[in-house]
Design a protein around this nucleic acid. Structure first.
Lengths: 166, 166
DNA sequence: AAGGTATGTTAGATAAGTCTAACATATTTA
DNA sequence: TAAATATGTTAGACTTATCTAACATACCTT
């Protein structure tokens, strides 16, 4: 029953992601643009497109553009969501600078299980939507600790609060 | 100045990790054991040992055992620490089951930057050592939310507290 | 529409990492 | 110690992913 859900490589996931991005942003995913995005040469892109087409993840005719199939869209979406989740966690909670967070997310997105993805998603929700039982203080303490390595005491908290308002 | 700090592949990191583990656990790192640990055949191990020896990360003589050099020890230690940190985060904070957490950590350990490693380490410290300004409640709320998707209200909190005491 | 530029493809090489089958060396044990 | 077993190595093939150089097609522009 159903098509066997092949496991594709990190590299192929990157290509799918790039194609999805270009379709969304420019309406069309071309070899050159994919190459520019992923920092690889055109023949590499071409080889990748042939592989992805063989796996029924894209439609691709010679000298034509690449389009994701239903399955390709699904996989690309999965990768994208993993990326976004990891990126949010790194940047909003661990407060890692954007560049580093993006770079790390680009690698971690290929490495996390559905379980970890789900939990991470919920964790972010928990923090952002304020489901911490009305105790947002811990987040401030966390962020202060992450940056200074020091515990926020009462006096320091006041200072931190003031800084946040500036 | 100093030796150029080569960047080694995820695979080579795995081999270093395995060698360090075997040295620690059994006093000696042999080709067969490394293979068993990493689920690869002996010729693959052999090839890896040659590569690592060429990079001065291990000492290895024909038909002899493998020993980490100072640099090899340093790298193996780095990987190990990244693994432990990620594993702790996944298992203790996101409460992912051990098997999945180990599997994910084995991949993520190759993907995180020093910055992310540092922040994650501090985050775990923050949680474990109770540096959250004396508000451990948020953690309970988090764990409850991660598992049920629901916010802990006052009544639910009492229930959660009771369960924790069982 | 012809020519030039941009884009896409093919061919062939390279590198990393894996495998199997065959061979070599060590170690154990009868 | 000699044979049997375990362990390590070599040779050669395969896969994935990349590259350069050369070639093919598409498109724009005048």
């Amino acid at each position: 029953m159903g098509v066997k859900a092949k496991r594709i490589s990190s590299n192929m996931e990157d290509y799918l992601e790039a194609i999805a991005f270009l379709k969304r942003e420019k309406g069309i995913a071309r070899v050159s643009d994919i190459g520019r995005l992923l920092q690889v040469k055109k023949p590499s892109v071409n080889a990748a497109l042939i592989t992805l087409a063989k796996d029924n993840l894209i439609l691709h005719e010679r000298y034509g553009s690449a389009d994701l199939t239903k399955e390709g869209q699904r996989l690309a979406g999965d990768v994208q969501r993993r990326h976004d989740t990891v990126f949010k966690f790194l940047s909003r909670i661990l407060e890692i600078d954007e560049k580093t967070a993006q770079a790390d997310a680009c690698k971690i997105e290929h490495a996390i299980s559905p379980m970890t993805f789900g939990r991470l998603t919920k964790f972010i929700q928990f923090v952002e939507v304020g489901l911490d039982g009305g105790n947002p203080q811990w987040l401030k303490s966390l962020k202060h600790y992450l940056k200074t390595g020091k515990k926020l005491n009462c006096r320091m908290r006041q200072v931190a609060l003031k800084k946040n308002k500036e």
